[in-house]
């Protein structure tokens, strides 16, 4: 067991005041506080080597949870064990076996090449010279860093910087990796590269990874299992595929025909759209095989394509419907 969380809870005291200078003045002497329950009651477990996607709209409590797991925030209530450590005790051994990457915050030293940050981390994590060289070599190759090592960080592009950021956090070969929106702001190509890297790294090192992202692509490409959180509560924890089947009990069938006959498509399924030579139908999951066979029988089909509904749609539904963990 890599990560073990039980009845985790975090409240923040937030100072409230209305706009305007009179209220600003009043708040100087008398402050009103409101308690915000960022995380209400969350329990889950993650096995070693798993990649789990952590999804939720802004302000759902994702980052708060990750920060508690990384030992940055002190939980209001509940227990956390990460590889047997209580994170907030902030033991050196704990810090040496985990890493945190935040897509919106950088740890690289701005004015000098990324290699210098790597060397600082080498000293801080007490990495042996041999191990350091070996890991660095591997990361440089996987992330294609060679041309970037000597350039000042400030002159790197966002994507290049993120790659160096990943390298800097993996030099000490952590067992647990927290990735908070690692692909934010990157172009599609670089996103893809970063994903491939994370997948490969996980395979080769059996690193436990907890990933949050706003890009569904990250999650579908990397995670079998997702946890969905909203308003500080876990709405779903389980297989991504099952979630999809549960929330969207249909598939999309796309049929290509030499020419589209004018028949009533409703007997096959719900008509989504008719294009030039192409018909899209929404069909209940249990009828998919049946309908496909009939379509192939009734028409001279050039091509038939069965698709799952887009994951964005599934997640949007998940946020709305508040399905509970199965």
């Amino acid at each position: 067991m890599s990560i073990h969380v039980q009845h985790l809870q975090k409240n923040f005291q937030v100072h409230v005041r209305n706009a305007g200078w009179i209220d600003a003045l009043r708040s100087l002497f008398h402050r009103e506080y409101r308690t915000v329950e960022a995380v209400k009651d969350i329990s889950f477990q993650i096995e070693s080597g798993e990649i789990v996607g952590f999804l939720g709209p802004n302000g759902a409590g994702k980052t708060t949870t990750i920060k508690m797991l990384a030992g940055l925030l002190y939980p209001t209530a509940g227990q956390i064990l990460v590889e047997g450590f209580v994170p907030f005790e902030q033991k050196v051994e704990f810090k040496k076996m985990m890493s945190l990457v935040m897509g919106q915050k950088s740890q690289l030293i701005w004015d000098i090449p990324p290699m210098e940050t790597f060397l600082v981390n080498k000293a801080v994590y007490e990495i042996e010279e041999r191990a350091f060289q070996r890991t660095l070599e591997e990361l440089v190759e996987l992330l294609e860093l060679q041309p970037l090592l000597g350039k000042p960080t400030r002159s790197l592009s966002l994507g290049q910087r993120m790659k160096c950021e990943l390298a800097a956090t993996l030099l000490h070969q952590p067992k647990v990796l927290f990735l908070d929106e690692p692909t934010i702001g990157l172009d599609v190509h670089t996103q893809e590269k970063v994903r491939q890297f994370i997948a490969k790294y996980n395979r080769e090192h059996n690193t436990t990874i907890l990933l949050t992202s706003h890009y569904m692509g990250d999650v579908t490409a990397l995670c079998q299992r997702v946890m969905i959180i909203n308003h500080g509560q876990l709405l779903y924890d389980g297989d991504l595929q099952i979630l999809s089947e549960k929330l969207t009990p249909y598939k999309l069938i796309e049929v290509r025909l030499p020419e589209v006959p004018s028949v009533s498509w409703e007997k096959y399924g719900e008509l989504v759209g008719v294009d030039e030579g192409k018909v899209s139908l929404r069909v209940a999951r249990e009828r998919v095989t049946d309908v496909s066979a009939r379509l192939l029988h009734d028409f001279s089909v050039a091509d038939l394509n069965i698709q799952d509904p887009p994951m964005e749609e599934v997640i949007t539904l998940a946020f709305q419907e508040e399905v509970h963990a199965s």
């Binding site: 051994e93 810090k95 985990m98 915050k105 981390n121 801080v124």
Partner: peptide, 13 residues
């Protein structure tokens, strides 16, 4: 202010 203290706190130092 920017929250980058987080990185300092995750370091084993």
């Amino acid at each position: 202010r920017k929250g980058t203290l987080d990185y300092v706190l995750t370091k084993p130092v």
